[in-house]
Simulated assay, not measured.
Amino acid sequence: MNFENITLEDFVQCIKIIGSMNIPNEYSGHLFIGLQVQLIENTKQLLLVEWSHNQFESMVWDVQRIQTHDPLIVFTSKQRKPN
């Protein structure tokens, strides 16, 4: 699925992609183009993404405002196996 020209601002957690392996809940292969993210002091995480082949073309503003030392972007290697 493609997402174009999305603007996010004033979020604690911006984008979280978590899913299962079963269709229609498989969360691989998404493309985010023109993503604009305005961070605030309370932002804890910009991206948390499971699975693979998701691509992000974005501009992130005001990273220097973030107070946390935790990573803002997390790509996990977690792959869920069917039962």
Rank of each mutant, 00 (worst) to 15 (best):
M1T: 11
E4T: 15
E4P: 12
N5Q: 10
N5C: 08
I6V: 12
I6K: 01
I6T: 05
I6Q: 01
I6P: 03
L8R: 05
E9Q: 13
E9L: 11
E9T: 11
E9Y: 10
D10T: 02
D10F: 06
D10C: 04
F11D: 02
F11M: 08
F11E: 05
V12K: 13
V12I: 12
V12S: 09
V12D: 05
C14G: 04
C14M: 11
I15Y: 05
I15P: 01
K16I: 10
I17V: 11
I18M: 13
G19E: 01
S20T: 15
M21Y: 10
I23W: 14
I23P: 10
P24V: 01
P24W: 06
N25E: 10
N25L: 11
N25R: 14
N25T: 10
E26V: 11
Y27L: 10
Y27K: 15
Y27P: 00
S28L: 12
S28C: 13
S28M: 10
S28A: 13
G29D: 02
H30L: 08
H30T: 05
L31C: 08
F32D: 00
I33G: 04
I33H: 14
G34P: 06
G34S: 07
G34T: 08
L35K: 04
V37K: 07
V37S: 07
V37F: 00
V37W: 00
Q38I: 15
Q38P: 08
L39Q: 02
I40H: 13
I40M: 13
I40K: 14
N42V: 08
N42H: 11
N42F: 00
N42D: 04
T43L: 03
T43V: 06
Q45M: 05
L46E: 01
L46W: 03
L47N: 03
L47Q: 00
L47I: 06
L48D: 07
V49G: 01
E50N: 09
E50P: 03
S52V: 11
S52A: 12
H53V: 02
H53R: 06
N54Y: 02
Q55C: 00
F56Q: 00
F56C: 05
S58R: 07
M59E: 13
V60R: 02
V60Q: 00
V60H: 04
V63M: 05
V63Q: 05
V63N: 06
Q64P: 11
Q64M: 10
Q64Y: 14
R65Y: 07
R65L: 08
R65A: 09
I66S: 01
I66L: 08
Q67D: 05
Q67T: 07
T68D: 00
T68Q: 03
P71K: 01
P71Y: 04
L72R: 00
I73G: 06
I73W: 07
V74C: 00
V74T: 02
V74F: 01
V74S: 03
F75P: 04
F75S: 04
T76C: 01
T76E: 02
T76R: 07
Q79A: 09
Q79F: 06
R80A: 00
R80K: 07
K81L: 15
P82V: 08
N83T: 14
N83I: 13
